[in-house]
Design a protein around this nucleic acid. Structure first.
Lengths: 96, 96
DNA sequence: GTAATATATGAACACTTGCTCATATATTCA
DNA sequence: TGAATATATGAGCAAGTGTTCATATATTAC
């Protein structure tokens, strides 16, 4: 399995997106559909600022996508790779 | 998708194992079969100490398993979940 | 226009991480 | 036994991360 340094970095960045419990919980919530920042913050018991900061990272990684409606911003998962990664990880954790 | 705080932490720890380029490259090398610490260090152009430190983490996460032979220690991937995670990540990076 | 609401952003700070360097342990060989 | 080799470990430190707090921006309602 040859792997360029660039791809090693890209892979590590990809997995970094899920390397924090707050982000994992955000992803888990978004699996059920889109949600606004405030609703996420309440569910997660985090400040809206902290959630917004995390969403920014997830957005840059193209894990989530934003939709603006009035003064709210709804976030949803960007593609199904995220869900696949998440589920595979969960499988490993649950009966690994 | 309900997710306990414990499982969120476990998931984040799982993905943390692949959140560093050095560890990703170690995994990539071990996909081809077991390798000793010195050989890994040479291939990766890292000190043996740095490699050993990373292998410790991977061992604790049960990503790799050690086999001692004389004064060498050969490492190999512990289970196929690791390879699945790696390949799915690679797929996402390559044509995501 | 002003006030209220929803989200984003930047600075600051505590905490974590991955390395280096020195040292320790374990094994082989003479 | 002692020297050489292979790996592991602990301390220390620079760099990175995730939060809080204050502030900025954008939208709606009045």
């Amino acid at each position: 399995m040859k792997l360029t340094e660039l791809k090693a970095i890209q892979l590590s960045e990809l997995f970094s997106a899920l390397s924090d419990a707050s982000r994992v919980r955000i992803i888990a919530l978004l699996l059920d559909g889109e949600m606004g920042v405030g609703a996420l913050a309440e569910k997660l018991n985090m400040t809206e600022s902290a959630v917004s900061h995390q969403l920014r990272g997830l957005r840059q990684m193209r894990f989530v996508r934003a939709r603006k409606s009035g003064r709210q911003v709804f976030y949803r998962l960007d593609d199904d790779h995220v869900e696949k990664l998440y589920r595979m990880g969960l499988e490993h954790v649950e009966h690994g």
